[in-house]
Amino acid sequence: MVMIDRLRTYKKEEVFFSYICVLPIIILAVTFVIVPLISVFWLGFTNWDMVTDGGNFIGLKNYKYLIGNEKFQKSIINTLFFAGVKIPLDLVLSLFIATLLDKKIRGRSFFRATFFLPVVIPMVAASIVWLWLYNPMITPLNQLLSFFHIKPSRWLYDPNLSMLCIIFFSLWKGLGYNIVIFLAGLQSIPDTYIEAARIDGASPNKIFFKITLPLLSPITYFVLLMGIIKSFNVFTQISVMTPEGGPLYSTGVSVFYIYQQAFQNYNMGRASAAAVILFFMILAFTLVQKYIGQKNIHYQ
């Protein structure tokens, strides 16, 4: 009965107009999201190489190859390392700077605007600038090290450092985004909360950890979620700064591996299988994060 009632309340004209409006995105989504998503699963079971038509069904061979392949394993580890090091540093640093900017200081909007500057500049140009900064022959960074009597480093050419160099660059590039968001969050916390706690004799540290931080949790969650999505997507700076994936493949992340397999080695089937594995990894991460989010976010 209820169902029929609901159906009856649809107005013909309204439904017609709605479908016209959503039609463009439906066509685009079907062609460039749904069909590709289904095909990528199929392609993962083939040995298609872009030259021969379609390729043959080879079962789980691609997956077996990938699981045993050192480069693929490295690409997963590199992606997780990037996310695991960058996201916490990003959160702590941006929150720290945001709390400094939240104090009664002069020139706040100037500081905020300048911190945000690297975010807006194009990634490729920024990567080229940093490639020059990291140049082992002449970098001012080595000059700085020699000032402290530390041996000059080979930066991006050092397999132990290359990923950290990429992470440091990415922090520089993205920090301002989180600072702006955290600052807005901090400024939206009513002063009365902090005032009340201060009158009750709470120390500044206690106020920060017991009041400010819990009230910021929806924003922290948002920043964390964006951080994870961005980390799984990281590609541009890797491709520009280390076009071969760095020394000993130390900077080859998942997207880079898939790109290389598909569009440089033309192993479309194998690359599709890698994309499917990445898809399930992200799915798992999202589910875990949703679970953690539901337990720990406090809304005002």
């Binding site: 062609t31 999201v33 998503l37 990528v40 799984f232 997207v255 898939i258 598909a262 898809f279």
Partner: peptide
């Protein structure tokens, strides 16, 4: 969903 997941079939299309 990252773009890379659907990238290869999108290129085919």
């Amino acid at each position: 969903m990252p773009f890379v997941v659907t990238m290869i079939p999108t290129f085919m299309i």
